[in-house]
Design a protein around this nucleic acid. Structure first.
Lengths: 133, 133
DNA sequence: TCAGTTACTTACCTATGGGTTAGTTAGATT
DNA sequence: AATCTAACTAACCCATAGGTAAGTAACTGA
């Protein structure tokens, strides 16, 4: 049997002059439930305070919001500025690095908004063929 | 106190003439550990058989590979063609829908390969400042 | 007859993401 | 003295993603 000359994911990544780690790092950071949304909102608003996020992102809990912001900050995508006042005031903004991530993310979202209908249709169709529903 | 006129994620999505559901649908599909990698490999190779995936994707288990492929097929991103032979032969390819997803995904990966270094550096720096390590 | 091949499933387990609710801090305001 | 506010943290729980190991189906070739 002739074996195809298969490229591994590492090979592909090497074409991009980098290892598969790069891909994983970014996927793990922004592939979660809220990170992309936080980044997009910051891009729209410029600056957002903690309790503002809490209000405008429907369904996120304070704990998870806190975790998400902390992770994004740790990875240099957003900036946290705390004012020494009472009650506390903390402002979040995009860093340059985070701002750079916006275009690729938007490209993805553009596709999502155009094609999520197709995905849902395919899903429905597939389930019909499987006799579900 | 003057309240800012904050845009919710729904508002933002509406600018794209679509609901936040679109975003979530796509994020949930390709935000997992392996989907993007499978799509990229299919884009590179055109056609891949099950056990070929098994070999070229380092670290994926047969169960998870099976789940991933099934999910991508259900959502119309890849095509599964089974030949009635023994031992079995099954070929996976991208659908038109799946092929369309490649450019946005690559845009993201390009960014990842360029900037994962910055993320890692930020992470290290942050941990140093926190006195960790 | 028995091993080999391919594409899976099945049973099982663990780590983790994310949710809920309640508590804390500390000065400003009433 | 009591209450309010903003930004969290802590304790707890559950569902699920993903991993391991083993099994199955069904024909081929030795």
């Amino acid at each position: 049997m002739k074996t195809k000359n298969l490229l591994t994911i590492t090979d592909i990544a090497k074409c991009y002059n980098n290892s598969e780690i790069s891909i994983r790092i970014v996927l793990e950071r922004i592939g979660d439930k809220w990170s992309m949304i936080v980044l997009l909102l910051l891009d729209e608003h410029g600056t957002i305070r903690f309790h503002e996020f809490d209000k405008i992102i429907h369904g996120i809990s304070q704990k998870v919001l806190s975790n998400t912001l902390k992770a994004l900050e740790t990875d240099g995508l957003i900036d946290r500025k705390a004012y020494p006042v009472v009650p506390p005031k903390v402002e979040y903004t995009l860093t340059d690095l985070g701002r750079g991530l916006i275009p690729p993310v938007k490209t993805l979202i553009d596709w999502a908004c155009e094609h999520s209908v197709d995905i849902v249709a395919a899903r429905k169709n597939h389930n019909l063929n499987q006799g579900k529903f």
